[in-house]
Design a binder for these strands. Structure first.
Length: 198
DNA sequence: GTGAAGATTAACT
DNA sequence: GTTAATCTTCACA
């Protein structure tokens, strides 16, 4: 069952945790691909130096994050990779959840082809990788997650004791914001992107 | 096993 | 001109 707009327009940290265990579905011309979300990070513009929308900074790129929840915010990083976020909460706040890792569920052959590897574990265990496996590019930035090309489906609900909170990754420039425990992973899932260090 | 370098684009100063 | 919410490859232990 596809998630409704109501799911996304709540508090970002709650949505981030509840996204764990859900299915990210990508319906492309080549076929359909599904993956279970096993790792996410929250970004909250108003208090988070690592967030592109920190300090109410609006630009062409961050404009998407100020929409109301349920849209996709995709940006290009380090020249070659894309990262996908789910915009959360109400309009004009600049909050989003970064999808960091998936567990491949459906369309695995297609993912292998796009990623050019045979190792399942290596297909989607990182933000840049999963975007390539799902053919997500900045063209999809601003896409509505209540549409049919890209959406999230109900699947599993992860209970509180199976969610691990830890520091976010690769945002050392963010000063005190780098210590926020806004990275959420499913306990003992082999498809998370990196070792947890608290 | 670890570590460091390089790739390459969009957006900001 | 600089730099980024990353990944792959190559060197060395």
């Amino acid at each position: 069952m596809k998630l409704e707009r109501d799911f996304y327009t709540r508090d970002t940290l709650i949505v981030a945790k509840e996204l764990l265990g859900k299915l990210l579905v990508r319906n492309s011309p080549d076929g359909i691909v599904k993956g279970k979300i096993v790792e996410v990070e929250a970004y909250i513009g108003s208090i988070d130096k690592a967030c592109h929308a920190y300090n109410d900074l609006r630009s062409k790129r961050t404009e998407i994050m100020y929409k109301n929840g349920g849209h996709a915010y995709v940006f290009m990083i380090y020249g070659m990779y894309s990262c996908m976020n789910v915009v959360t909460n109400k309009e004009n706040l600049g909050e989003a959840v970064l999808i960091r890792a998936l567990e491949p569920i459906d369309g695995i052959e297609l993912m292998k082809k796009r990623r050019n590897t045979e190792k399942i574990k290596n297909l989607t265990n990182g933000p840049g990788k999963l975007c390539k496996a799902l053919d997500i590019t900045k063209d999809l930035s601003g896409a509505d997650l209540c549409s049919d090309t890209l959406y999230i489906e109900d699947y599993e609900t992860i209970s509180e004791e199976n969610i691990i909170s830890s520091k976010r990754i690769n945002i050392d420039y963010a000063e005190e914001a780098k210590d926020f425990l806004w990275r959420f992973t499913i306990k003992d899932n082999p498809f998370i992107s990196q070792k947890i260090n608290i």
